[in-house]
Design a protein around this nucleic acid. Structure first.
Lengths: 356, 356
DNA sequence: TATGATGCAGTAAACGATTACTGTCTAGCG
DNA sequence: CGCTAGACAGTAATCGTTTACTGCATCATA
């Protein structure tokens, strides 16, 4: 069954596609009589018309679709993706998600996708993909807004200041009586410009403590878990573990508990990002909460601005993160100190699995 | 800077857009001389050409884009989305994600999107959206493959048999000595055709035990948590809690621990879906593991089949799930019994937050 | 009765690709 | 020399919209 087109409606009503287009896009308000408008709308409904968005995109140059670039859809990234969808919903924009990082050949990928199907891109913590993209498409690219913890001057940027949170975390565990405070990070956290590691080292220096860097290959739960198990079996554990992100904190949590290590009595534990999961453990995990709602809203607004006025100077802004102190790092008996003391997943979550 | 088009390449090489198109799409193999082909390819690279996919889609009728409909991008759904992206990657297809459920006006939504930008749709546990879609678009729709736990005869279907898992779970906790075995579910789980609840009731009947249904409004962690806390405070707890899904199990876990209830000694706990999180708790949570890889592969293949041969009869298949028994339900001292004894997130997870 | 406004709707040219056809040129053959 | 086949490339229609422009009544005004 062939799709219904403007022409079909036009001939049903006895008019032309142009008129139908004007009416259906709402651009015919002073131009087409109310009677005709009504007849066209009725016919459209009756025939089950829906526009061919490819044709529309071809002529308008807009697809009403944006891309989210993230390395994966798990964990923190999934949280962001979810919020971003909430932000987009009223806007009539769709979102295509690409795990840029996993694509074996960026250049080929960009060659194919530089122009499409998106009007713009929000790149979450993907500085290298962005750079690669900008190079590959030399000015002809859909605009990019970088978001996340990695600063860039090549695109609009909405960042989160995790460094302050990490410093606070370091001081906090010190106040709780920890002496040997380690930073559990990964290869990426070891890059020269990683703000979390730098903040950790800074804080340690300020307190006159020796920094201890524990580095895994990737920031996965399993990597953190096995590293911690190894440490525990050689009795080489620090008494505080500040983790690169919540994933690593959760892996470390499990590793410690498996080895019979008590949290926080033997080892105080903190994560970073503020994903909901951290709140549900026997000892809820202290974490640095990212302002995800704000991040998504700002990134979206920024992108819309850029689409409206492509030659604005590059914008950039940094949002604050906040340390949420929970049981995993609290040795003294003080009460919870946390921006959001309750589990952070109070975001309306309307339907159950199998729902809709 | 205007985008580069076929015409630009053509005039650079001194030929026509048609020829360029043939070469660049690989359809010019016997038709265009090798010399010309080379010149065209060089020019394309040099000018930084990338095709306008809207134009291509308009004439070919294919967008090389599919939609994933899910209610959210968290939890189990995020796991599926992630795997699906892995499945899609080699195929040169993109994925747009829509949380159909949250759209306030389905009909309006479908009116806008029925045709686009997708060649097909994979609908994860979204029976109502699918139905609504099929009605709204009467045969003119992009094909849909339903996936998940809710059976439908209106589209191709790749399902997962959770019922068997639930029965096994019920028998398992009974064997562990539980007498008062409750099912913690939500409004959706109470629908007449919910296979999990039915399986639970069946198993209870088979064992001659009284079924106890605990029902929350939605399947969220927080709902489960508060319900369980209430139960604990009125000393009305069962000694086993079979949860609708892992979300509810995790919420229940937290609720129980907050109230000082021991798992599994006081209450044995099981979840459903097999999301990685369940493996990291002090008492790792028994769960029914969905074969997500298989699910995604089959759904994708099914969709591709349908696109190739639109008038094939509807296909449907059911995949088995498997009970993964962990500490949260094991009262006797037996060893782990689990298809995958290790945490289920061994799927390559190449990069850390902030990576790329 | 000319003269513009004004209100409505049609005309036709894009947008950038794909593709069925048509055409030209050369070579080979009888 | 005439004819055909094959190799190569150009022509032009098409996909379904949007939109700048033109056209035609009708009606009020000078």
């Amino acid at each position: 069954m062939r799709r219904v087109t403007l022409r079909d409606i036009a001939s049903a009503v006895g008019t032309t596609p142009a008129t139908v287009s004007k009416v259906l896009t709402g651009r015919g308000d002073g131009l087409i009589s109310e009677a005709t408008r009504q007849r066209i709308r009725d016919a459209a409904r009756e025939l089950g018309y829906s526009p061919n968005l490819a044709a529309r995109a071809l002529v308008t140059g807009r697809t009403h679709c944006i891309a989210l670039w993230a390395e994966t859809l798990a964990d923190y990234h999934a949280v962001v993706a979810n919020v971003l969808m909430d932000v987009l919903r009223p806007s009539r924009y769709e979102m295509v998600i690409t795990d840029v990082v996993k694509h074996p050949d960026w250049h080929a990928y960009f060659q194919r996708h530089a122009p499409w199907p998106v009007d713009g891109i929000i790149a979450l913590d993907s500085p290298h993909s962005v750079q690669s993209y900008l190079e590959a498409s030399a000015g002809r690219a859909a605009p990019v807004v970088s978001a996340g913890a990695y600063y860039t001057t090549q695109t609009d940027y909405v960042g989160v200041d995790l460094a302050t949170g990490v410093r606070e975390a370091a001081f906090h565990v010190a106040e709780e009586g920890c002496k040997r405070i380690a930073h559990l990070t990964c290869r990426h956290g070891m890059r020269p410009n990683d703000s979390r590691r730098l903040a950790y080292e800074q804080a340690m220096a300020a307190m006159g403590l020796e920094p201890v860097l524990l580095v895994t290959d990737q920031s996965s739960r399993e990597n953190a878990r096995s590293l911690v198990r190894e440490l525990a079996s050689t009795h080489d554990l620090p008494d505080a573990l500040l983790c690169f992100n919540d994933e690593m904190a959760i892996g470390a949590y499990r590793g410690l508990r498996e080895m019979g290590v008590r949290i926080p009595e033997d080892v105080a534990l903190t994560g970073c990002d503020g994903i909901p999961d951290t709140a549900y453990f026997d000892q809820p995990i202290t974490t640095i909460v990212q302002p995800v709602d704000e991040l998504c809203n700002q990134a979206w607004q920024c992108l819309m601005n850029r689409l409206d006025r492509p030659d604005l100077p590059l914008q950039s802004q940094i949002l604050p993160a906040s340390l949420c102190i929970r049981a995993s790092s609290r040795r003294s008996g003080t009460a919870a100190i946390c921006a959001s003391a309750k589990p952070p997943d109070e975001r309306p979550n309307p339907s159950p699995a199998g729902g809709d």
